Computed example of a mutant assay.
Amino acid sequence: MRRLPVLPTILVALAIAVMIALGIWQFQRLAWKEDLLKSYAAAQGLPPIRYPERPDKMHPPLFRHATGHCAQVVDWRSTSGRNLKGEAGWVHVAQCRTDAGHDMQAVMGWSDRPVSPEWTGGPVTGIIAPDSQHVIRLVVDRPAPGLQAAQPPSLADIPNNHFAYGVQWFLFAGIAGIIYGLALRRRSVDRA
Rank of each mutant, 00 (worst) to 15 (best):
I20M: 11
Y40A: 14
R77Y: 00
E34W: 10
K38D: 06
G68P: 03
M58R: 15
R77C: 03
V74A: 00
N83G: 07
L46T: 12
T79M: 07
R29G: 13
L37S: 05
F63Y: 11
V73K: 02
F27S: 14
A31E: 10
H59Y: 12
Q28T: 15
P52V: 03
A41E: 05
S80L: 08
H69P: 00
K85D: 11
A66Y: 04
P60T: 06
R50F: 02
K57N: 08
A21G: 12
R82N: 04
D56H: 14
P48Y: 08
W32N: 11
P47N: 05
Q72N: 15
H65P: 05
G86L: 00
H69S: 14
R54H: 11
K57V: 07
A17E: 03
A71P: 00
A31Q: 05
R82G: 01
A71I: 01
A71G: 03
R64Y: 08
F27H: 08
L46C: 13
R82Y: 15
H65M: 13
L22A: 09
W76E: 00
D35C: 02
N83L: 01
Q72C: 05
S80D: 10
L22Y: 01
Q72K: 09
L36V: 07
H59P: 00
S78M: 12
E53M: 12
V73D: 01
P47Q: 06
H59D: 12
K38F: 06
W25P: 10
L22Q: 04
